[in-house]
Design a protein around this nucleic acid. Structure first.
Lengths: 316, 316
DNA sequence: GTCAAACCTTTGTCTTGGACATAACGCGCG
DNA sequence: CGCGCGTTATGTCCAAGACAAAGGTTTGAC
C-alpha cells in the first residue's frame, strides 16, 4: 500500500518527461530519504519541487526533479541548508558537491576497481579485492582501499555514472570480502570487548564492518550487533556482554543534533567504566568534543585508541 | 528531527506506565512498521491505540499499547485483518499467534542454540553454528537448522522472551556464518546465472542469504545485489549481468498485492527467456500461481528448480 | 578578544478531518 | 464448486496551520 512506484500516467500531455519514470510521493520518499511531509512543505515554502498531478490529483514527480532532490539531499548531508541551495540549478548543485574531490595518490588502482564494477565483471572484482587483502593485509586494505573506493563509488553514483544496482553490487561484494577476512583474522580474543552498533534510522552497515575489521586486526573482541539499535537495548546488551567499549557509527546523513543528544543520554545511562567511541562522517562534522565520549574522526585513530585503552586498563 | 524516541513527560500523572518508556508517533512507526497515517487512522476508526498526549498535545504511546500494536502487526503479517483482531486483548493476540507453533523434530538441538543466545555466549554460539555446518553440510544446515532456528527466535521475540539486541545478535552471527560458508563453497561457476534481490521496502536479508547458500551448494552462479532494488534497476542489472534467473525474496510482512503487481510488471519488462523465481513467507500465502513466474513455496524446492532449469537449457 | 546568553530565522514534524482508491470479503449465479 | 460483482474494510493522500527545535547572529560581560 505504501508502494506506488509503478508506472503512472501524467494528466498533462507534456512531452517533457518520460511518463514511465514518474514516481509517486511514497516512491520519492524512499528514493531521496526526504519524508512526505518535507516534500509537501518545500513545495509550499520554496516552490520546489513542483510535481505534476495524476488524474486523481496526487503528486507525481518527474525524473529531473527527483535528480535535483537527490543532489540537494546529498549536499544537506554535508551540512548545507535547504533554503540556501534549493534555488540552484542541478548543475550548480553538482558543482558544489564534487568540488572538494580529494583524489588519493593511488588513483590508478582505485580506477581499476571502478572499471571492473562499471563493466560488471563480478568474479574479477571479487578476485581483485581478495588479492588486495592478501597483498596489503586487512588493515591497510580497509584504510587504503575500501575507504577511498567507497567514497569514489558514492561520488560516481551521485554524478549518475553508476546505476543503483552497480552501487549495491559493490557494497555487497565489499561486505562479503570483509566478513570473510574478519572471520579468518578472528582468533585469540583479547580485551577490550567492543560492542559495535548504530542508532535507529542509521542503516549504514559498511562503516561498522570496517571498524570491526580494524579492531579484529588488533586482537580486540568484537560483539557486532548490526544496525539500528535503540539506546535502551544498547545499554542492556553492554551489560549482558560485559562490554568495555560501545562503538557507534554515524553516516553523513545522520542528523548531528540527534547524534549528540543520543550520545549524551547513552553516556548518562552507561556505567562510567564503559567507554563510548563514536565515529563516521557525521561525527567528523561535530565541532566540539563531548564529555566522556571519544570522537573517532578518522579510522586511523582506532589502533591508537586500542593501545591507549590497554595501557590504561592493563593492570586491572 | 524525525527522532523523538527519547524520554518524554506525560501530561497526566497517571502512574499507569513508566514515562520513560513512552514513545512519540515517529518512534512507534519505526518500532511497529505501522505508518503515522495508519496509527492516526486506527485511532479514529477503531479507538485503538489511544495514546496519551504530552504538554504540546502530541501523541505519546505507553508501552502496553506498543506491545499490542506489535502483536497486531505480527498477526497481520500472517494474514489476519486489523478490524477483526484490534479489539482483542494482548493475551488473546499472543494466543492466536503462537497457536500454530510447529515444533520440528530436532527440538532439543534447536533449544541448545536458543540457550546460547539467551545466555549471551557469543563464541560458543559461533562455534556451535560452525560445527553444525561441518556436520550437516551447508545445504542441510540451512534447511534443518537455520530455518527452524530463525522462526523460533522470531517467535521468542514476539513473546518477549528475547530482547531486541539478542535477536540482532543472532541475525548477525547467522549472516556471518552463512557468508563464510558461501565464500568457501563458491568455486566453479556453472549455469544458471541467478540474480538475487528484493523489492524496495523489503529489507529482510537473511532469506536472500539462505537462497544464495542453497544455490551455491548446487553450483549455480549467484549475483547477490542486496535488498531493496527498484524494478527498473533489476531489469538493467539482469541485462548487464546476463542473468538467466531473477530470484526475489518476500518476507511475511510484505503486502501480497504489492508483491503480485510488482512481479507482474517485472515479468512484462524482462525478456521471456529470463525466469523469475519468487520466494519467502509472503509468497507462501499467495493462492494462485502467476503466469511466467515460479513461486518457490519452500526452500526445499530450489534444488529441483535448478535441475529442471538445467534439463531445459542444457542443450542451449 | 573570547565566551555565552538571548534573539531571530529557518526548517521539519505533528495535528485534524476529509476524500477517495482499492483490496478483501461474501453473496448469488451459473 | 468456481466465477463475477456489489459491499465493506482499510490505507494513502491532501491541505493548511501550529509550533518546537536547530542554526545563525547579535549583544553583553568578563
Amino acid at each position: 500500500m505504501d508502494e506506488r512506484g509503478g508506472v503512472r500516467e501524467a494528466v498533462t500531455l507534456m512531452p517533457a518527461s518520460d511518463p514511465a519514470a514518474m514516481l509517486g510521493i511514497s516512491a520519492v520518499e524512499r528514493d531521496t530519504g526526504l519524508s512526505k511531509d518535507v516534500l509537501r512543505m518545500w513545495e509550499r515554502r520554496y516552490r520546489f519541487p513542483l510535481p505534476l498531478r495524476d488524474k486523481h490529483g496526487e503528486r507525481i514527480y518527474p525524473p529531473e526533479q527527483i535528480a535535483k532532490l537527490r543532489a540537494i539531499r546529498r549536499l544537506m548531508d554535508r551540512g548545507y541548508r535547504p533554503g540556501k541551495i534549493i534555488g540552484l540549478a542541478l548543475e550548480d548543485l553538482n558543482a558544489l558537491g564534487s568540488a572538494p574531490t580529494e583524489r588519493s595518490p593511488s588513483d590508478a588502482e582505485i580506477e581499476d576497481v571502478l572499471e571492473l564494477i562499471r563493466t560488471h565483471q563480478l568474479p574479477e572484482l571479487r578476485q581483485q579485492l581478495n588479492q588486495r587483502i592478501m597483498k596489503q593485509g586487512l588493515q591497510r586494505f580497509v584504510l587504503d582501499t575500501v575507504v577511498p573506493l567507497t567514497s569514489s563509488v558514492g561520488d560516481a553514483w551521485v554524478r549518475g555514472e553508476f546505476a543503483v544496482f552497480e552501487e549495491h553490487l559493490y557494497t555487497e561484494q565489499i561486505q562479503s570480502v570483509l566478513r570473510n577476512a574478519i572471520a579468518s583474522a578472528q582468533a585469540h580474543s583479547r580485551a577490550p570487548r567492543v560492542l559495535l552498533t548504530s542508532f535507529p534510522t542509521e542503516q549504514h552497515y559498511l562503516g561498522l564492518l570496517m571498524v570491526e575489521s580494524l579492531l579484529v586486526c588488533d586482537g580486540a573482541t568484537c560483539i557486532p550487533m548490526g544496525t539500528e539499535m535503540p539506546a535502551q537495548e544498547i545499554i542492556r546488551a553492554a551489560s549482558a556482554h560485559r562490554a568495555d567499549v560501545v562503538a557507534l557509527s554515524f553516516s553523513a546523513a545522520y542528523p548531528e543534533r540527534q547524534a549528540a543528544s543520543g550520545l549524551k543520554s547513552l553516556r548518562a545511562a552507561l556505567p562510567r567504566q564503559v567507554e563510548i567511541w563514536a565515529g563516521g562522517a557525521c561525527v567528523r562534522r561535530l565541532r566540539k568534543g563531548m564529555d566522556g565520549i571519544v570522537l573517532v574522526r578518522t579510522l586511523e585513530q582506532l589502533g591508537g585508541l586500542l593501545i591507549d585503552w590497554r595501557a590504561t586498563h592493563g593492570g586491572a
